[in-house]
């Protein structure tokens, strides 16, 4: 502790199985402000850390519906209201011919919502984050697995939490500075 504020305590593991086992123990011990870091997605960690299912799919559905309405609305406005003209003997509102553009706009807006919604909910872009202060953390994108308990967790107590983390059989335990 070099006089800087403590962000949390982090433990390093070698395998995803160890990480999931440790995460489960951390949750059972009653910690809530926790996070895990891994070089690839691990499905078991969601349940172990108690991560709730994201609302992202609903946002994407909304985006898709908006795209569909926008597509149909645009074609209705241009071909029925603003500039009605008979082409090829079809009615002003020729729905079958209007399907492809509306369909493409549905997909376009849904895809935009999926990508930017995911980044927004994840709080990205975030160029600075305290976890990067741990030099070993560079390996989180290569082959190591990390578990973090934040200092703002109501159960957090430096001595106790650190001792608890060491009891989880990690490779190493680090203090993460703010």
């Amino acid at each position: 502790m070099s006089g800087k504020k403590l962000y949390g305590i982090m433990a390093e593991f070698d395998t995803p199985t160890e990480l999931v086992d440790a995460a489960r123990k951390v949750r059972e011990a009653g910690y809530t402000k926790t996070d895990a870091f891994s070089p690839f997605p691990i499905h078991e960690i969601d349940e172990a850390l108690g991560i709730r299912r994201s609302i992202l799919p609903f946002l994407v559905f909304g985006g898709g519906v908006l795209g569909l309405l926008l597509g149909l609305g645009l074609q209705y406005y241009t071909h029925v209201i603003d500039y009605p003209i008979i082409v090829g003997g079809r009615p002003h509102f020729s729905l079958p011919a209007f399907v492809p553009p509306a369909y493409e706009l549905t997909i376009l807006l849904a895809a935009f919502t999926a990508v930017f919604g995911m980044l927004f909910l994840n709080g990205l872009p975030m160029p600075y984050h305290p976890v990067f202060n741990v030099p070993r953390f560079a390996l989180a994108s290569r082959d190591k697995f990390f578990l973090l308990i934040e200092s703002k967790d109501p159960k957090f107590n430096y001595e106790e939490t650190r001792k608890f983390m060491e009891s989880l059989n990690p490779q190493e335990v680090f203090d993460v500075e703010e």
């Binding site: 960690i45 799919p57 895809a111 995911m118 994840n122 990205l124």
Partner: peptide, 23 residues
């Protein structure tokens, strides 16, 4: 974009990736 491999991020990431595949 400052990706750090957080479990919460991976969770949403996988959902987004699967939805993109479905789209």
């Amino acid at each position: 974009w400052g990706w750090r491999g957080s479990a919460r991020h991976w969770h949403r990431y996988e959902i987004a990736y699967l939805i993109l595949a479905g789209l």
